[in-house]
């Protein structure tokens, strides 16, 4: 058997089984995977380090925590509690994902030499070779994606994969909404360069 960790990319069938299994095992053992909430938790940790009044202990709240920020305070201070105790399952899970990406890349043989980790091939083919432009656009992309994900209450992991796995209406709604905007945007934004 070839070592799967050395391959640059898995065949779609192995990929589909592996992706399915990790979503299945996590919902069986702990809870469905979700990622985007942890951006809020990390923001909260930064914010708390400069503002000691952000998170307060509150006996009247169900979690025992409250926040001066309306979002951290929602659902009886659930996020406020996680900001105060970042060593919880969901936050550590996301930190471990960074290590997973690192390990996977480290073991990969025959890396894609064309890809410098800044400009994807399709970007070079349609937009050009400016790394500054790429950084500006990905930054804006990050702002829009996380703003949208928080408004929607989840992202590709939480809504699309975990949600649709459970046949949740919110999951289908999110998937349809994202494809309605992303497909035309990608087609327009990455249309062929005039040459």
């Amino acid at each position: 058997m070839k070592c799967l960790l050395k391959e640059r990319e898995w065949d779609w069938k192995i990929s589909g089984v592996a992706l399915g299994l990790i979503f299945l095992v996590t919902v069986m053992v702990v809870k469905p995977i979700g990622v985007s909430t942890q951006f809020v938790i990390l923001d909260g940790i930064f914010w708390k380090s400069v503002s000691s009044e952000l998170i307060v202990k509150d006996d009247k709240s169900k979690t025992g925590y409250a926040s001066s920020n309306a979002y951290l305070n929602k659902s009886s201070g659930k996020y406020a509690q996680n900001v105060d105790n970042p060593l919880n399952y969901s936050f550590v899970f996301v930190i471990a994902m960074i290590m997973g990406g690192f390990i996977s890349a480290k073991f990969t043989k025959n890396k894609d030499e064309e890809d410098d980790g800044v400009l994807p091939q399709v970007w070079k083919d349609t937009i050009g070779n400016s790394t500054t432009k790429r950084y500006i656009i990905v930054f804006i992309g990050g702002v829009l994606v996380l703003y949208g994900a928080r408004m929607a209450g989840g992202c590709s992991s939480g809504h699309m994969m975990s949600g649709m796995m459970q046949t949740s209406i919110s999951g289908y709604l999110f998937a349809i909404a994202t494809f309605i905007s992303s497909v035309p945007t990608a087609m327009y934004f990455f249309s062929k360069k005039e040459s």
Partner: peptide, 18 residues
């Protein structure tokens, strides 16, 4: 609505949170 905003950022960058 959040999904629509998400989709625009997803398409121009090629990334989602995870």
């Amino acid at each position: 609505i959040g999904g629509i905003i998400f989709g625009i950022g997803w398409a121009i960058s090629g990334f989602c949170p995870g």
